[in-house]
């Protein structure tokens, strides 16, 4: 299911830890890199590969919002909604994004560009409210204007073909 280089990477990960279960987090990254998300089939494959149960894999996949169980858009907007961000208006931010992109959280726009997700604390409470695009650096102290600018920039980037 994975490319030969990725299989090799997983072999290498397995040598790093005393128990194969510990290699699960990085192995999931390797798998997600290839597909952009991690299907149940892929989770089962990794379970057998690591000698753990499929349930143990899925527990981890669903615990961390960084792992996607469904395909996501080109830009995955992960809005923190944990208490400090919530107090600073994250509900407004995510609600604004939903309206602007005409999708609900967890959904992807029809053009495949954006997915909006609600995630737990990303460790940047001092600059709340905040969000993260894919695995890039944070967009912080968000306002509606900043959100508009961010979406415009990403759209332009996608059109320019250098996203």
């Amino acid at each position: 299911m994975l490319t030969p280089e990725r299989e090799k990477k997983i072999d290498e990960l397995l040598t790093r830890y005393p128990s194969s279960r510990s290699a699960l987090l990085p192995a999931l990254w390797v798998a997600q890199e290839q597909y952009g998300w991690i299907s149940l089939e892929l989770q089962k494959y990794l379970a057998i590969r690591l000698g753990i149960t499929p349930e143990q894999v899925r527990e981890v996949v669903t615990f961390y919002s960084m792992y996607n169980e469904r395909p996501v858009g080109k830009y995955h907007l992960q809005v923190c909604c944990t208490t400090p961000c919530m107090l600073m208006g994250s509900d407004d931010v995510i609600g604004y994004l939903e309206k602007k992109l005409d999708i609900r959280r967890g959904q992807t726009t029809a053009d495949g560009l954006f997915t909006v997700s609600q995630v737990e604390c990303l460790g940047s409470c001092g600059t709340a409210p905040m969000l993260q695009v894919n695995r890039e650096k944070y967009d912080e102290n968000l306002t509606y204007e900043k959100v508009d600018a961010l979406v415009d920039r990403l759209r332009a980037q996608a059109e320019g073909g250098n996203g």
């Binding site: 149940l40 089962k44 349930e55 669903t62």
Partner: peptide, 19 residues
């Protein structure tokens, strides 16, 4: 057997199965 899983987290956590 190990067939039950704790899925998701925080307020959304549930006890469930793989599929």
């Amino acid at each position: 057997v190990g067939a039950l899983a704790k899925l998701n987290r925080g307020a959304h956590e549930t006890i469930g199965t793989f599929d």
